[in-house]
């Protein structure tokens, strides 16, 4: 009887991590080329083609719909950066624009049947670490060496441990937030298909759930990730 229980647990619904396409040994470590990386390459190629098409043959007065769309995107990014970071963070516009478009496309590519790269903690952690490095860079740049270390003993020296923990928990929470939301969408989608499998063909109900968990949640989480990146970077500025 106990064996039957274990077998039932095995046969049930499971979530697979990203597939490992290839792996090799280098510097004493195993390096895996996973599905997430492949899907990210696809996203990068798609975005590159899109931007080359959007950015070619621009005129001062837009005459084509293509250029109107390109200007809409650029204005959106510029307004977002200026609104939450201010005019002096002009140089962050390309990164922020890339980040939001890339994360939105990575979240939504799950709709095409590929596995969302953002449902892999190593991808979201990479993006969060980039934000963390930029935060530290901005603090060091605006405050110098003295200002950088002074920010950690602010307002009192005994706050040092909690400041360090607070600094490290930012990228951790950003990475896990995006990852958790995308995996939750994937798990709930899988559970709905699994539950419907025995009663009826999976129509209508998965579509409604997907509308919220994939589309709404994916776009909102990308926006939140970008907004948090911008506010962490501009909050790190030393006086």
């Amino acid at each position: 009887m106990s064996t039957a229980l274990l077998m039932a647990a095995d046969a049930g619904f499971t979530i697979q991590g990203p597939l490992v396409v290839a792996s090799w040994e280098m510097f004493g470590m195993t390096w895996n080329l996973t599905e997430s990386v492949i899907v990210q390459w696809i996203v990068i190629v798609l975005l590159a083609v899109l931007f080359i098409v959007l950015g070619s043959g621009l005129k001062v007065v837009p005459t084509t719909r293509r250029q109107a769309l390109a200007e809409l995107l650029v204005t959106f990014v510029i307004d977002m950066v200026d609104g939450s970071m201010g005019e002096k963070y002009k140089s962050y516009r390309p990164y922020v624009g890339m980040l939001i478009i890339y994360v939105v496309v990575c979240n939504l590519i799950g709709l095409l049947g590929l596995r969302s790269p953002t449902a892999d903690v190593s991808v979201t952690a990479t993006l969060a670490i980039i934000t963390f490095v930029m935060t530290q860079y901005n603090r060091a740049k605006t405050g110098g060496v003295k200002g950088y270390f002074k920010a950690f003993v602010d307002p009192m020296p005994f706050m040092l441990p909690s400041n360090i923990i607070g600094e490290i928990s930012n990228p951790v929470s950003m990475a896990l937030r995006l990852f958790g939301n995308m995996v939750a969408g994937m798990v709930i989608g899988g559970l709905i298909y699994f539950a419907l499998g025995s009663f009826m063909p999976p129509v209508v109900i998965p579509a409604i759930a997907s509308l919220y968990f994939d589309i709404f949640s994916g776009v909102i989480q990308a926006y939140i990730f970008t907004m948090l990146t911008m506010s962490y970077i501009s909050n790190a500025e030393c006086e």
Binding site: R177, V183, M227
Partner: peptide, 20 residues
Amino acid sequence: MIIGDAIAETTGIYALVVAL
């Protein structure tokens, strides 16, 4: 509000990660 929601959600997401 959306940023505040995201911050408030953090503990919930941690719990979800533990559960998963």
